[in-house]
Design a protein around this nucleic acid. Structure first.
Lengths: 247, 247
DNA sequence: AGAAAAGTGTGACCTACCGCACATCTTTTT
DNA sequence: AAAAAGATGTGCGGTAGGTCACACTTTTCT
């Protein structure tokens, strides 16, 4: 684990078979795969170094493969006809995205647009090659099914929240959800979410202004804070009580 | 809110031996499985005959297995704390549900509540047994991944619609979506959707009254109709143009 | 068939929140 | 360091759509 973080020159990793296997270990669905199986897959992986704001894939583009977040964070967005945007999901180190393009017909588009929220490394694997790997390594298939189970489950909860809750409740819930996701170091204090209020609003499914108003209150209570275009959760404990206390 | 009168009788499970292999062929993920593999799985399948309105699983219940719709239709719902309900998804002949419980920890709940919309046969397979089958039959895993891909993709679109569209647009889109789903016989005319307006409203994520108002217009234009607590789409072609014409 | 239960249609409020406007604050660029 | 670009805070209508109320229709039950 420490070795992974020690890679100084990213380009070096691309040519060193072994160290790239370590890159893959960061991805949940590869974590428990045997060294042998991994070695085979590694050869086909492409690594992309991307900067904040750069677009990885677009929902208007034919799906070519599946992506993995090695480092940094990624937002997945969808638009309606009039250009309004919603962030469907935020992906983080270890996550997979565009997995919904697997086993679809070749002309199918990507399910969403993906954009970097922070600088980071993204791994790419061609659709057909991953499909073959899934066939050859049953453990990998199971991991994938497990991962998709979680994704589906989370998405149904999100759908319920978006449809039923008011802006205040949705905002707090989204803070909890993303807070959990970005609580890397297990430090319960000062969790950073790399989103602006504008972006956060599109996760919640509301307007910038509405979120801003809710945030004003939360800031006053010392629960959250903002610094350099990130949201910082200062008081996780209180945050989690907001919705559960009786009215 | 309105509690469902649940008559769940496990004794209704019928074991029908070999002819059950044919039952399984109706399910998308089993369709292309070899006769041999299928024969093994069949032995563990349980069949439930259920009536309209009967509850199959609840989101407050520990997940025991995965279900398949042999006939009839099923709604999957979630509730928030105050009892408001949303229909997350409607499942039909060939579909799978509760698949999100695969490979989760044993104490995990079902992701949603499932209730019959029409009389029908539901097949059940124990979670652990299906997990083992997935490991043993790679083709089955691939089918499952493919199915979950579609589910994920559809869900992201639905999330976008719920968050961004107004009631009119959401209603029409939902009619299109469900129309496609229930257009069994490929007859483009008179597609029946086995939902009341009340239920339909919870799919759309709005109130009964709002849907009723939109439906009034659509009925006046001869696009839809209602008969015996079903929605009937009379003019599919016009329905599909409603949202796409310029304003 | 008749009663009870469930679902529907529509008008009249009422309110949450969207959209606009504009000032202010923060970050990036040059 | 100044300028430009971007993000945020907040007041103020306007309105889509939620809520309530009640009459009416359709389905189910006995």
């Amino acid at each position: 684990m420490n070795q992974v973080e020690c890679v100084k020159d990213p380009n070096l990793a691309i040519y060193q078979g072994l160290s790239q296997a370590d890159l893959l270990r960061k991805i949940v669905i590869f974590k428990n795969l045997s060294q042998k199986s991994l070695a085979i897959i590694v050869q086909r992986i492409q690594t992309l170094e991307l900067k904040k704001g750069e677009q990885i894939i677009s929902e208007t583009e034919v799906a070519k493969g599946v992506y993995f977040v090695h480092s940094g964070a990624v937002k997945l967005t969808k638009q309606d006809e009039s250009g309004n945007e919603i962030i469907v999901c935020v992906k983080q180190t270890g996550d997979v995205f565009a997995e919904a393009c697997l086993f679809t017909k070749v002309s199918e588009y990507y399910p969403a647009t993906a954009t970097m929220l922070q600088d980071g490394k993204i791994l790419f694997l061609d659709k057909q090659e991953l499909e073959r790997d899934l066939y050859n390594f049953p453990e990998l298939s199971l991991q994938m099914i497990s991962y998709m189970s979680d994704a589906l489950r989370e998405m149904t909860s999100q759908l319920r929240d978006v449809a039923l809750l008011d802006v205040y409740a949705k905002t707090v819930k989204t803070l909890e959800r993303l807070g959990n996701k970005f609580n890397n170091g297990l430090n319960r204090w000062d969790i950073e979410i790399p989103l602006t209020i504008q972006e956060f609003a599109t996760v919640v499914g509301t307007t910038r202004e509405s979120v801003s108003r809710v945030f004003s209150k939360l800031k006053k209570d010392g629960i959250i804070d903002m610094k350099s275009r990130k949201i910082i959760i200062r008081d996780w404990c209180t945050l989690c009580t907001l919705l559960h206390r009786e009215y």
